[in-house]
């Protein structure tokens, strides 16, 4: 794949992940506020999330969007403000994306596993 084509896909991926994040962050914050104001304890929250396919899918999508969005944005920041770019940077950011995905999915599993 040519560099320009790959860059075009990266832009699309960032826009698409931003759309997911916009919705996911609102739902997440609203849920947190409702839960805290409702006075639920950590154990009571886990009781509701454990085994929930809905929450697993929602937070799984959230984590995936973060893992796509953050490294692409970081790539632009590194190029524009630090002046570093190229294949080594891109490969490092792929590893960063995988680390975000792994740690995020681990957290999702911890709160939604049966």
């Amino acid at each position: 794949m040519s560099a320009v084509r790959a860059q075009s896909y990266l832009w699309l991926a960032q826009r698409a992940s931003a759309a997911v994040l916009a919705l996911a962050v609102i739902v997440h914050l609203a849920t947190m506020i409702i839960v805290v104001r409702g006075g639920l304890s950590a154990a009571e929250i886990l009781e509701r999330t454990r085994g929930s396919i809905g929450w697993a899918v929602f937070y799984g999508a959230f984590v995936l969007a973060v893992a796509v969005h953050a490294p692409i944005g970081l790539r632009t920041i590194l190029a524009e403000w630090v002046g570093v770019r190229g294949r080594p940077v891109d490969l490092t950011l792929v590893l960063f994306a995988l680390a975000l995905l792994a740690s995020g999915l681990r957290a999702v599993y911890a709160v939604t596993r049966p």
Partner: peptide, 12 residues
């Protein structure tokens, strides 16, 4: 379109 795509083009 090819010329204006990518990191140095409109996406920047």
């Amino acid at each position: 379109l090819q010329a204006v795509a990518g990191d140095a083009g409109c996406h920047a």
